[in-house]
Design a protein around this nucleic acid. Sequence first.
DNA 1: TTGAAAGCGCTAACAT
DNA 2: ATGTTAGCGCTTTCAA
Lengths: 328, 328
Amino acid sequence: MDKKLTINDIAAQASVSKTTVSRYLNGKFDNMSAATKIRIEQTIAELDYRPSRQAQALKARNSFLIGVSVADISNMYTSRLLKGIGAYFQKTTYQVLIMDADNTVDRELNNLEKMISEQVDGIILQPLVHQPDHYQFLIDQKIPVVQVDRYIEPFTWPAVVSDNFQKSVELAQIFKDKHYDTIIVLANHIQGISSRMNRLNGLKAGLNDSPITVDLIEIDDSNWQAVLKDKLHTTNRIGIFALNGQVLWSAVRFLKQQQINVPEDVGLIGYDDDQFADMLSPAIASVAQNPQEIGRTAADKLAHSIKDDVILTKNTRIPSTIQMRDSL
Amino acid sequence: MDKKLTINDIAAQASVSKTTVSRYLNGKFDNMSAATKIRIEQTIAELDYRPSRQAQALKARNSFLIGVSVADISNMYTSRLLKGIGAYFQKTTYQVLIMDADNTVDRELNNLEKMISEQVDGIILQPLVHQPDHYQFLIDQKIPVVQVDRYIEPFTWPAVVSDNFQKSVELAQIFKDKHYDTIIVLANHIQGISSRMNRLNGLKAGLNDSPITVDLIEIDDSNWQAVLKDKLHTTNRIGIFALNGQVLWSAVRFLKQQQINVPEDVGLIGYDDDQFADMLSPAIASVAQNPQEIGRTAADKLAHSIKDDVILTKNTRIPSTIQMRDSL
DNA sequence: TTGAAAGCGCTAACAT
DNA sequence: ATGTTAGCGCTTTCAA
């Protein structure tokens, strides 16, 4: 493999100093003769030279790198989140370093340390842990961070999330109108995940003036199916509220397998994966978030936070919508 | 914001030269007194210092960055592909720079140029264009590249793909056994996308000893629904073969809306999104690829290609499996 | 209008 | 066992 081209090669080839080439690269044409400019331009084109971002970054003391840490890269919420983030930074000089924590705390930690080593200029974080002290090392770095989807408490960094609590209050009203007796909230490990907690708490808050009871089942629990089956043995009207797409599909699969009919035997609504929910028979009601907009907004906030060196700790809520369908 | 720590800060604090610190960082303890080692260790821990990868990379003449260019980040195939790639490089010193071409040729070009500027050590590419000359600038860079999912022809870089052709031959046998008369292949723009072409051509090859005809409908064509509807007006036994997940769901939605029954009126099988296909009624048969393994394999090939500076142009096929279900 | 030289944070050859 | 020094590719004074 031949050696990489450097600014010196261009300088030599164009018979100017590298200072002048550097000026050209940075658009400083104020005091440059047209002839020189053209010569450099042609040389660069001819040799197909591209300046090293490594070296530029070293000099500039910032890397033009944005770190993005997601909980699990392989779900649709994340995909769409990344779409929003990527589309934003595409138009800028920043590159995006995406790291997948794979829902593993150690891995997230490792990823964040790598980001620091990469001298990232800012981080978008979907945190796995909700205690701020877990992230103290990051706080100490004073790198701009924007949280997405969830947040640690108390607020240390701004967060861009869905209107989880409010939407669950709305959902509570629907359950009341439809005369449900019991709501079973089905979730992954919920403790400390603010989005999930808010979905649960919003529901409880919305139902606290009614006799409707709320039960939580975490599907990380290996015998959740038995527990759920047990709860379904009643003449009460029961609704299941699945707190994310993955959990929703677990529920659908379980109900199908148990030959429990929706909505006759039990009502069902879940978060995310709206397009698929629509295609089942019966069509499943769902709460549709807007992860792409969450990503875009977070990217925008981060960019401003980097540029203005200003620390915003406000929580931004992106509206989601309840899609009513036959399952409820 | 306070200035970043450098190797000089550690050297000063620990009263050694930065060379010694550098030796410590690189694990060269051969000729280092235990006392010095401990002192440096403590200083680094105390100040929470992390060496700058920018500077290390500049010195080492490589960036420890891997560029990944995907056609569209927001679909499940891609998510799982990235999972496999990320899991592999997680264990290495490489960072992954993911860029979404958003199915736009210009954007892919822009992304690849950015990767070159970042001096990436290698690239994993899901190419949008199949003419090698479109990528000539990349070929000229002599950066190791591994293609995934599809490939340009003639082979310039190694590719890791699914066994598309072979699996379609298998599928052809199923269509024959089930006495179909006509197969409608439903796809996105197919020209030049090797994976899609191979799926179509494999089917044709498998059917060429039978009277079964094959029709292609591209859903990029705005009136594909009318065309499809028209073809369905026959007493022939028709099977629809959707070449990816997105297309499959378009088909499902169309059939549902037209109240065309599967499998009574028409047979249906599609690529990808296997878990969802399973939950519909009737359950949809599908060809399940293994994108995570494709990603892992591509990452592994790329890593070797970088390390050994060896150019492999072999095509690697990762097996997929046909999941037969009620829809066919 | 242009160039020489210093320096960004790090590594490595060559001292001692 | 440790330090001095040069240099990676670039930008930026300062000088001419």
